[in-house]
Design a protein around this nucleic acid. Structure first.
Lengths: 197, 197
DNA sequence: CCCAAAAATGAATGACTGTTCATTCATTTC
DNA sequence: GAAATGAATGAACAGTCATTCATTTTTGGG
């Protein structure tokens, strides 16, 4: 049983690394098998198809992101504090899981219709949490924004760039980058709240 | 001669549409040929390879973006006005050329080393123009930002989301979306400048 | 120690890949 | 009207793709 898990986990890890580096369609089952020192046929003892590996990676990623970013938020805190904490955790998760994040952004279109349904359900739950923070903040007057949905997407798109930036930047520390993003996110919704690390 | 251009342009258009919809590796030369009602072998009368088609699309896109967004900027204007105009033109170009933009973001890794050199040269010229605006604004005190380079990338990443957002949003007009992005971009660098459409 | 179940093998399958090429066709140039 | 030019054809090439499967090997529990 631990043997089974070992191989299955090795497949996950290798597939994740290869999909992130080259893209789903550019990676073959032979590549994945070779990366773990096995024959391609054996992969089908653990996953029904190449597509099933991709779906597994994307769904598991979104569940872990939700547990790490959304679940710990204090519903009783102010919207500014919630947004502050959201950005910090979101950025931290991005930095800690660059390959998962890259795959999540790039390989949505490589999903077939069944897989897309599962993945999008998880993604919507995540986005909706941010929308609610902005919505509440706008209602209470702490935020200045025309539409919570569009600002939520704008913030997520902005934060999505952190992976690329962090990789290419040598000079900035993770803390400096995080503070910049917290500042940019808070200012983008017109908040005068001062970030607290 | 016009016959040649007709077919070559038809290849460009079909390849652009297919690459944007399915991704470079998911599209075959047969798919492109079929889309223009020709045989696959004939494509090689106009492009040396599949890779050459991708490079052609990406380089031409960046040259057109530069002509449309960067070139018209008034170097004598204030950084706030320049950033305002940059965002408007940038967003407009994104909305008007969603397929080019999608390919530019997604298919960088599908380039071989020769093609990547050509494409990245064009991209750097574009990014550098925004960096200079932020740099000048920070020096003159109109902007509040720790690092022009990181804020430039953060803005570009934020604006990059406009294509996805615009496609999925039914309620917001292009003008409303543009104003939101101008506001978000200006606020993200701490400017108190009021956008003027 | 045995035996059932799981895992791995390695060859085979048919379909699809980018690319080449001899040939044909249409159009333009002398 | 002949010669030249470039575009299009459609078959063929060698290679790769995801997947299947009969077979062998490994494993863990009674």
């Amino acid at each position: 049983m631990s043997q089974e898990h070992q191989t299955k986990q090795a497949i996950r890890q290798s597939a994740k690394r290869l999909f992130a580096a080259q893209g789903y369609h550019a990676v073959s089952m032979r590549d994945i098998a070779q990366a773990i020192g096995k024959q391609p046929g054996g992969l089908y003892n653990h996953f029904a198809s190449k597509q099933a590996i991709l779906v597994d990676l994307m769904v598991e990623n979104l569940k872990r992101a939700h547990d790490f970013v959304i679940a710990p938020l204090d519903a009783a805190a102010t919207p500014e504090t919630q947004l502050d904490r959201f950005v910090r955790q979101h950025v931290a998760y991005h930095i800690q899981n660059p390959e998962d994040i890259f795959i999540a952004y790039m390989e949505l279109r490589s999903l077939d219709s069944d897989g897309a349904k599962l993945v999008l359900k998880e993604r919507d739950a995540y986005e909706n949490a941010l929308r609610m923070i902005l919505h509440t903040g706008a209602q209470n007057g702490q935020f200045t924004l025309a539409d919570p949905a569009i600002h939520a997407r704008s913030i997520l798109a902005m934060l999505g760039g952190v992976t690329v930036w962090y990789r290419e930047s040598g000079k900035q520390s993770l803390q400096e980058i995080t503070e910049s993003y917290v500042q940019a996110a808070l200012q983008s919704v017109g908040s005068t709240y001062h970030a607290q690390a």
